[in-house]
Design a protein around this nucleic acid. Structure first.
Lengths: 196, 196
DNA sequence: ACGGAACTACCAACTAGTAGGAAGAGAAAA
DNA sequence: TTTTCTCTTCCTACTAGTTGGTAGTTCCGT
């Protein structure tokens, strides 16, 4: 009950790191076993198949995201601030190289070749983020804390695309600061002008 | 000299398709040999190693892009039109499912786990596209055919991120039309207002 | 006769996954 | 209290299939 770190969590954590750097086919049970320090067969005890492992990982990734978003919504009333916190979260992850890429972004780009059970979880993640951002846009528009030039759901898709595109660019150039460079004007565009 | 289709080209073409759907580690020489209709060992005759094959593919991908861009620049003087043609190119590729994802986008997201020889070619591709878009932005700003709200190179990065992010979203949702939905307002924002 | 392009037949390393046993901890039974 | 039973976790040892790659040969056009 009072476990600070279970083997199963260690397996998931190292899977996430491996997945983040090269996708579904870039790592093996052997890689995980080396990092976690147990034998290959022991991983199969916790996650019978690779599909089970990655499906579970993505499921938790989404659930963690949903939980984080729920807390965020309660603590930050201003819609623009929420977008800033969200962008800042990724900016920091990329800049300190701790989590420099979204696992689901990588898996989404591999979607056609993924096992269907994993693919379903990945698309579910994107649907969740998209719906959440649309709700933030809509609320911001009502509050007057966001200036929209298109419908909320279109602005949401555009913002999401900018974030994930910026993440890709940062990785492609090997320059973390590119993320901030791209996001700053995107957020600016959504900021209401103070006076007129 | 008058070859319409060489085996080597067939190999590269099927590699591109396989690569596009799942990345570097998602396909094998066996996959290619089945599609092209020759034995595995014959592929090694044309491309000694997998690194050679993919390096050559990305190199040509970039060279083809550079050639296409050169023609585009000569035929389309208006900078906004160039961006529209570029966006439309991808919109069509995605919608008719012929080339629904950029090979270099997929490889870029796998960058940390790629063989360095391939990684170099991939980053070279992004540098090329980025520099080209920046030059288009700069020219459009001078011409008055583009309305920029940031420096040309920042607008270029933002536009590139939007295009690649939209490409990812289209794939993630399995809805090709999402690409156009995201790009339309992005292009609109760059369009000068006719009267004032 | 020579070179390119294809072939057959390999190989060692690696892939995900399985079978079955040993070690330990906790509960239940003596 | 000690013994036994059970469950979990991890292990060694293995499998069948795939991976990228090699050696050596045949075929064919110039």
């Amino acid at each position: 009950m009072s476990n600070l770190s279970t083997t199963s969590d260690d397996i998931l954590a190292s899977t996430r790191n491996l997945l983040m750097s090269g996708g579904y086919n870039s790592f093996s049970y052997a890689d995980i076993s080396e990092i976690v320090g147990i034998r290959k067969a022991s991983i199969h005890h916790h996650f019978p198949s690779k599909v089970d492992l990655v499906r579970e990982l993505v499921k938790r990734y989404r659930e963690d995201g949903q939980a984080t978003v729920a807390v965020l919504e309660q603590n930050v009333p201003n819609a623009l601030d929420i977008l800033k916190v969200y962008a800042n979260h990724w900016a920091k992850c990329i800049e300190d190289a701790s989590r420099p890429y979204c696992v689901c972004a990588l898996l989404a780009s591999e979607l056609p070749s993924l096992p269907p059970e994993v693919a379903i979880e990945v698309t579910a993640f994107f649907r969740f983020i998209s719906l959440w951002l649309a709700s933030v846009m809509e609320r911001g528009s009502r509050q007057g804390t966001l200036t929209l030039t298109s419908e909320p759901h279109v602005e949401a898709e555009a913002f999401l695309a900018t974030v994930y595109g910026a993440m890709l660019s940062a990785r492609a150039y090997g320059k973390p600061e590119v993320f901030g460079t791209i996001l700053a004007p995107a957020l600016n565009r959504l900021t209401p002008t103070v006076s007129h």
